[in-house]
Simulated scan of single mutants.
Amino acid sequence: MELTLTRAQELKPHPKDDELAFGTVFTDHMFNMDYSPEKGWHTPRIEPYGPFELSPASMVLHYGQAVFEGLKAYRTASGGVQLYRPKKNLARLNESCRRLCIPEFNEEDLLDGLKQLVSLDQAWVPSTHGTSLYIRPFVIATDPYVGLRSSHTYRLAIILSPVGAYYPEGFNPVKIWVTRKYVRAVRGGVGHVKTAGNYAASLYATEEAHKEGYTQVLWLDGVEQKYVEEVGSMNIFFVINNELVTPALNGSILPGVTRDSVIEVARSWDMPVAERKISIDEVFEAQKSGALSEVFGSGTAAVISPVGMIKCDDLEVTIGDGSAGPMSKKFFDTLTGIQYGDAPAPDGWIEPV
């Protein structure tokens, strides 16, 4: 497909690296592409960042047919810009499209469009370690129709945002709150894809966690309410008797790109890795016996986030001495080293812009 470019006539001022929050500032341009049954995906274009025009009857507003991704571009020490595992993210976006009855796109074409967009706005990529350019591709249903069916037309867009740390705590340990009252997803549903409704469903419990002084919710399975699944914006890992344990992908857990990276890196270190069911009771028993040495989350936004405290029901426990553990730090340093170009990357992980 031939991509067209319309440059912004007025460029916005760039925030300083030390002023960056997460997801509040956006670059000068965005990528857009549309779908219709007659043309398929068509009219790919880069144009000035700005609002969409949508009918109030657009199906995304009524039935939530929307999917998205999150990935990052990083500034290297030499001044170059590189993407971290973008092919994995675009493949997962297509998987989300399939599950939400959205037509698939050509991943190579979209990667080319993404790279052209980042290249055009590369001056927005910050250079301080801990900062990056967050990339948000998403697809929404646009048919002006209030009957329940899948849409016939769609908009695929990519927007860019220079960001700092996702959590105010930075790399310091976060506190997570286990809920038995609410459910994020169930097997057979859409918990394994990045669709907007999953996150809307998590908001109420997250607000309750914040009121109690906790950063995120740790979700249990939706059937027995006993097996650990994931945290609101991260997959979760436990170091138990020097083995890395994470919940097995079961159809209600998002297959995180950073999760996959952690597992690959751990195995390259010959560290034992178990992807299996793990109950919250087992976690607390391991903490009580001293077998549990660390807990950390993994995700695009935070990369690695150590967990210092977990509360479930009336029981609150501190993990280790409450500080970031050595394995959390080792994974964080290794992955960020790859992302910023300071360490060698496995084949296919880095895509230069």
Rank of each mutant, 00 (worst) to 15 (best):
E2D: 13
T6K: 12
E10R: 12
K12H: 12
P13M: 05
P15A: 02
K16P: 12
G23T: 01
V25A: 06
M30A: 07
M30T: 04
F31W: 10
N32P: 01
N32M: 15
P37D: 04
E38I: 04
K39I: 00
G40F: 02
P44T: 00
R45P: 01
R45Y: 04
P48S: 08
P48N: 03
P51H: 02
H62Q: 03
F68G: 10
E69N: 13
E69S: 11
E69C: 12
L71H: 09
Y74P: 11
T76M: 02
T76N: 11
A77I: 07
G79M: 08
G80E: 15
L83S: 08
K87H: 10
S96Q: 07
R98K: 15
L100G: 07
C101R: 07
C101I: 04
I102Q: 13
P103K: 00
P103E: 02
E104K: 08
F105L: 09
G113M: 04
K115C: 13
D121K: 03
P126H: 05
T128Q: 15
G130D: 13
G130V: 05
G130E: 10
T131P: 09
S132L: 10
F138G: 00
V139Q: 05
A141N: 04
T142M: 14
L148K: 08
S150P: 14
S150H: 14
S151C: 09
H152T: 12
H152L: 14
Y154E: 04
A165P: 13
P168W: 10
E169Y: 07
G170K: 09
F171Y: 12
N172E: 15
N172R: 14
V178C: 10
G189R: 07
G191M: 07
K194L: 06
T195K: 13
A196W: 08
A196K: 03
N198C: 06
A200G: 15
A200Q: 11
Y204G: 03
A205W: 06
E208W: 02
H210R: 14
H210F: 07
Q216W: 11
L220R: 02
D221L: 05
Q225D: 12
Q225T: 09
I236D: 05
V239G: 01
I240K: 03
N242T: 13
E243A: 14
V245E: 01
T246I: 03
P247F: 02
I253W: 09
P255G: 11
G256C: 12
D260P: 09
S261A: 15
V262C: 13
V262A: 01
E264T: 14
E264W: 07
V273N: 08
E275D: 05
E275M: 05
I278Y: 04
I278R: 01
D281W: 12
A286Y: 08
S289F: 06
L292T: 00
G299R: 06
A301G: 06
A302G: 05
S305E: 06
V307S: 10
C312D: 14
D313S: 13
L315D: 15
E316A: 15
T318G: 11
T318L: 10
T318Q: 15
G320V: 07
G322W: 09
G322H: 08
G325Q: 08
M327D: 12
F332M: 05
F332V: 00
D333W: 05
D333F: 03
T334I: 00
L335D: 10
T336M: 14
D342T: 13
A343T: 11
A343F: 14
D347A: 15
G348W: 04
P352S: 04
P352C: 05
